[in-house]
């Protein structure tokens, strides 16, 4: 439609082409914004609805007459009930403990290994690098049954220590893989200069590689953090007593009791449990995305 007006305004052929191009661009922009708005509404609707439910009273949730996407008298009682619930706080501390330990372990293992694999070529290092990638492709749902037996054999079932033991299978391969990529992008001249100055391998790693590859390390740390925080299969399989449960499984299994669900509290619990990764994402979005895309673009 706008092409015809452009053509009418500029009867000569050459202008017609230019006008239609501009109209095409504008049309593309309008389509883009419409798609993005619809997508954003769909993507954000579930968390928004969870939030709306979490600030409703049980009476309001049970009342079917009104609009479910609106809150008439907001309340924080669901949140306070959870925060003052020692069991829920226990879930939180278990998650914090497991996640911090796993992140520290993962980063130590993968930085050392990525440095050795990327810079100190040795017999089998190529094979091992491929092996790291293959392990990354093995999903946790393939391993949880044998690991259940192994962890049981070690007497670590129903204990957060068992989780600390097995979570590295989720985090270490990917973190090592992206750290190899980041270390590979550091120019060789830097380590030559360090060697000439008489640095040993450890000094080279701590003085040059870690500072230079810091963005990569942050990205890998964020990945390890979000994955261990969100882990679900292993804790569901290994943990049965509420005292040892981390957030994810604690909210899913313990806040659902009997036939009458406390929906408000359940949603509040889910949002509180999702909060740490979301906060990390909000503040470190660029690193988060760098870590996501590094796997494929560096690979």
């Amino acid at each position: 439609m706008s092409t015809t007006t452009a053509a009418a305004a500029h009867p000569r052929g050459i202008f017609h082409k230019a006008g239609s191009l501009r109209a095409e661009r504008r049309w593309a922009l309008v389509t883009a914004y419409i798609s993005l708005v619809i997508a954003a509404i769909i993507m954000l609707a579930p968390p928004v609805y969870m939030f709306l439910t979490s600030i409703k009273t049980s009476a309001e949730i049970a009342d079917l007459s009104g609009n479910p996407w609106w809150v008439r008298d907001p309340t924080l009682e669901n949140y306070t009930a959870l925060i003052f619930n020692p069991m829920f706080r226990g879930f939180f501390w278990n998650s914090v403990k497991v996640t911090l330990l796993v992140v520290a372990l993962t980063m130590a293992i993968s930085i050392l290994a990525a440095f050795a694999l990327g810079r100190m070529r040795f017999w089998g290092s190529q094979w091992l690098a491929t092996g790291v990638f293959l392990t990354y492709l093995v999903p946790d749902t393939l391993l949880f049954i044998p690991l259940y037996q192994i962890v049981g054999g070690l007497g670590l079932l129903d204990s957060t220590w068992g989780l600390v033991l097995v979570y590295p299978t989720l985090t270490v391969p990917f973190c090592t893989w992206i750290m190899i990529g980041y270390f590979a992008s550091i120019p060789k001249e830097l380590d030559e200069a360090a060697l000439i100055d008489g640095a040993n391998w450890m000094q080279m790693l701590t003085r040059i590689f870690i500072p230079v590859a810091l963005p990569g390390i942050i990205a890998a740390t964020i990945f390890a953090f979000t994955v261990s925080w969100a882990a679900f299969v292993y804790p569901t399989a290994f943990i049965t007593s509420p005292a040892e449960m981390p957030m994810t499984i604690g909210v899913v299994s313990q806040l659902i009791r009997g036939d009458t669900f406390a929906w408000g509290q359940l949603m509040a619990g889910a949002l509180l449990a999702a909060l740490p990764p979301v906060i990390v994402y909000a503040f470190l979005m660029d690193y988060y995305i760098a870590g996501l895309t590094a796997g494929a673009t560096k690979g």
Partner: peptide, 8 residues
């Protein structure tokens, strides 16, 4: 975490 958003 998908387990939690699935609750929603």
């Amino acid at each position: 975490p998908p387990a939690l958003s699935t609750l929603g």
